[in-house]
Design a protein around this nucleic acid. Structure first.
Lengths: 240, 240
DNA sequence: TCAAACTTTGAACCATGGTTCAAAGTCTAT
DNA sequence: ATAGACTTTGAACCATGGTTCAAAGTTTGA
């Protein structure tokens, strides 16, 4: 879960850090490794930025290298290739979202609030964190071996959201519904934001999150308590 | 609007059909032109199929040619290139959806029913018609000139949906809301279906459409009439 | 300060895939 | 049947872009 960032091919540093060779002084090589990982993260963020800006397909390794301030060839010292770059972007993001979903589900809150929390987290990780890991959505570009791993986690996340809805229904807080379908509708509405959201737009991410949550939760709320869960916010457009 | 299918580069037939040259017998050359257009449509459908199967980026001209039963080079006799192929796919689909949205809005029906109609049409054109013109969603691949045209129509469509929601609110059939955001949420939920829908899955397209409509409309319905507009369907999964 | 390990470079390699083209095949009108 | 228009072919062209690599630069440990 900690996902030390170097699981796949690691030609670079950090590999032989474990190899028990009684190093007289461990702090120094630790510093090297630490720096290496930091570098990797920087590169990853740069890549995510380019992915977001140009789209995964159009993003070239040369572009990414430039954005990360290093030579094209040097990229391959830190990552095995574009696939791995994309993979880590996606993996980090989906991990965060999964965590958030499971935490929300465990929390002692009304189902509506749980869902709200998930929605907020989802948009945060999709649009803000990790330079807006929009890459999360383009799984098709990965080679089979990497892809399946992401798909699996993605499915797990979807299950978590679905479970949250089912739970709400069971508690009587949500109206009965086709939870699988609704979960997909919610996730679709959320994921689609990456198509139209612009960082310099009128609405902040949290404003968008709140607005979407209002609508998406209302469609679920059991008729009786509809107005109880949360007073529907006024119809505004550009509150910061 | 009729979009005679050959607006861009048309090196092939149909171009000089207009050239006033007093043809002794028009029916014959008409037949040729007719056949040409039919062929173009076949190719377009084949392309759409490949786009859907492999994704726009991964779909190669050679694949498309094979799917359409002709040689790679021959494709270029009917279409200027991959861009144009993708363009026509998208253009046809968005035209249909726009039509449907405007028709629905003009119809004398409760807002909830109007929205239902749009949702059904949207999914129909996205998942079924035109071999499931999933291509509709990948605008980023087109060159600037073609892309802007599609974007424009797409925006127009979004406006139509939004207007429909606003209208519902004004009539008091929908609860007040941020119509722009809700419209995007609805469209997101709909467009996202192309990521998970499988023709051989348990639910038919109309079943999915109904299910989504139930949820998406309920989130809009004014509290008072909520149960009036449509009795919420039972929670089923696989009705044909 | 020296050797080993770690980084960096950028030019070159190479597969992929969109596109072109000249030659050949087929159909239509007379 | 024949000229001319319409189709088809598939090999070759070429730009793009991911990737490799050998050599050079820098840091670390003794």
């Amino acid at each position: 879960m900690v996902q030390s960032l170097n699981s796949g091919s690691n030609r670079g540093a950090a590999t032989r850090a474990e190899s028990g060779r009684t190093l007289p002084n461990r702090t120094a090589s630790d510093r090297v490794r630490r720096r290496g990982e930091a570098r990797r993260l920087d590169i990853l963020r740069a890549a995510a930025r380019v992915f977001r800006r140009s789209g995964v397909a159009a993003a070239g390794m040369r572009d990414i290298a430039q954005e990360a301030d290093l030579s094209p060839g040097n990229l391959y010292y830190y990552f095995a290739g574009k696939d791995e770059l994309l993979f880590f972007c996606q993996d980090r993001t989906v991990d965060r979202m999964l965590e958030a979903a499971q935490a929300a589900r465990a929390a002692k809150l009304p189902a509506a609030e749980q869902l709200r929390t998930v929605i907020r987290a989802h948009l945060h990780y999709t649009l803000e964190e990790m330079e807006g890991a929009t890459a999360h959505l383009e799984v098709d570009m990965l080679a089979e071996n990497l892809r399946s791993s992401i798909i699996e986690k993605r499915d797990k996340y979807e299950q978590a959201v679905r479970a949250l809805i089912v739970q709400g229904v069971q508690r009587g807080e949500f109206a009965p519904c086709d939870a699988a379908l609704v979960a997909r509708a919610v996730l679709g509405a959320l994921n689609w934001t990456s198509r139209w959201y612009r960082p310099d737009g009128a609405q902040s991410v949290t404003a968008i999150a709140d607005g979407l949550a209002d609508y998406l939760v209302r469609g679920l709320a059991a008729a009786a308590q509809q107005t109880l869960t949360k007073p529907a916010r006024a119809l505004s457009g550009g509150r910061k």
